[in-house]
Every structure is written in structure tokens, then in C-alpha cells.
């Protein structure tokens, strides 16, 4: 039955690992904004088309011309 000591030590260790992970996640600011990431996740479903870089450059040039 002395295995209980061992088992307890392991279970406490596992608990402590999760606890440290929790502290780390709070510290790195993961709980500062709890809404935006939930929306951001949905954007991954967007069907990404191949951008022709010319096209983008064209419009951004036009835009910057307009701005100037």
C-alpha cells in the first residue's frame, strides 16, 4: 500500500503542472480579451484564393494616390 505515497506525489505533480500552465496563460494576457479570439477563429474558414500580387499592388497604389 505504500504505493499510495507514490500515486499521491504523481497526482499532486500533475495538478501543479496544470496550475503553472494556468498562471502562465494569465500572465501572457490570454484572459485580457475573451471575446475577439472567439470571432477570429471563424475567419479561418475563409476560402483563400491565390492573390496575384500585381492586383494588390495596383489597388494599394490607387489608394495611396487617392490619399495623396
Amino acid at each position: 500500500m505504500t504505493i499510495i505515497y507514490m500515486l499521491l506525489a504523481v497526482s499532486v505533480l500533475v495538478a501543479v503542472i496544470f496550475f503553472v500552465a494556468f498562471i502562465y496563460s494569465v500572465k501572457s494576457g490570454q484572459y485580457d480579451d475573451t471575446y475577439t479570439p472567439s470571432v477570429r477563429m471563424l475567419f479561418d474558414d475563409e476560402l483563400v484564393k491565390e492573390y496575384t500580387s500585381k492586383k494588390i499592388n495596383k489597388t494599394s497604389k490607387e489608394l495611396s494616390k487617392q490619399i495623396k
Binding site: 475567419f43 475563409e46 476560402l47 484564393k49 492573390y51 492586383k55 489597388t59
Partner: peptide
């Protein structure tokens, strides 16, 4: 503007 850049999602 968005349409031209394929951002219509």
C-alpha cells in the same frame, strides 16, 4: 475596394 482585393468574405 474589398472586392478588387478578394476580401469579400
Amino acid at each position: 475596394i474589398l472586392h478588387e482585393n478578394d476580401l469579400t468574405y
